[in-house]
Amino acid sequence: MARAGRRRRDRVAVYLALVMLAIAAFFSLATTTFFTLRNFLNLVESYSVTGIFTMGLLVVLVAGGIDISFLATASVAQYLAVVVSRSLGLDDSFILGVLPALAAGAFIGLVNGALIHYLAVVSIIVTISTQSVMFGGLMYSSGGRSIYNLPGWMYQFSGTLFSVTVGGQRHPIGAAPLVMAVAAVLTFALLAHTTTGRQLYAMGGNPEAARRLGIRLGALHLFAYGYLGLMAAIGGITQALRVEEVVPNALVGREFDVLAAAILGGASFAGGRGGVAGAILGVFLIGLLKNGLNLFGVSSYFSDVIIGPVIVIALCATHLGKRKETDVGFA
């Protein structure tokens, strides 16, 4: 009985894994370059940052909200990390350099959460506004210029951290996959193994019931959006380490890729659903598709033409037959 319950919960992850296997098998047979360790590591490296963002967004989605400002937060955090380190002369202190950025990310998230909770407005509308505030402010204060000259502590962790040698070939591994792994474990622990995580699911499932049970919705909103803000800041800095530059408008506009990954992974717009395993699989399903198409010689723009329908098909699969026959609502 107990096992049956568990199986029910993880069904999305199992389906996703199967679909991914099928896609991977197809690309392995169709191209020679796909099924290689190098390509695999490359894939993981490229999608790790998306994975970090997805972990943050997942928490908000579970809580029954949505946020589209997190990439603006990430850009602000990147920029702050560099500017603050430079102006305070914190060139080689990793902790002191990274701290203001993380604090800013969490703070922005808290502001989002507070506005959503206290003004009682749909979260998409609030976060559209805060995104504009942050992005407009960032573009103005940075003048839209990229920064290529990073503080010293960033270079300590940028590029290749270590490498594995397999069959005589050196494969470099950067910080991004490690940070993503930590973020995933942290988020998994939070959602599945803490009381706060369970309260987030409860609030997503039935906010009114949660309120009556004495769960402090305000605190949970602050926590969820604050967590996303923190993850966004971490993701932003990881991205800066990966590409060794800070480009103010590089991230904003790709929010929906992250949302798509979380939704593919079983998170729902209505809240209370989804898990870390599914979300990570969602990220790499999209990654796999883009990577494979790329190896086929399809342009990255055109891969959106595939991704769009994939999102729609996934939505059909998760929604079809879920409504009562006399129910015509949408969620």
Binding site: T194, T195, T196, A202, L213
Partner: peptide, 28 residues
């Protein structure tokens, strides 16, 4: 309550014993 105020997405056992989940950031 008349609407029962349960969490539809959670299991029966977690609904019944949700009281245990009330503290913040404790192990579940």
């Amino acid at each position: 309550y008349q609407d029962l105020a349960l969490f539809p997405n959670l299991s029966v056992y977690e609904n019944i014993a949700f009281e245990c989940n009330l503290g913040s950031l404790r192990p579940y």
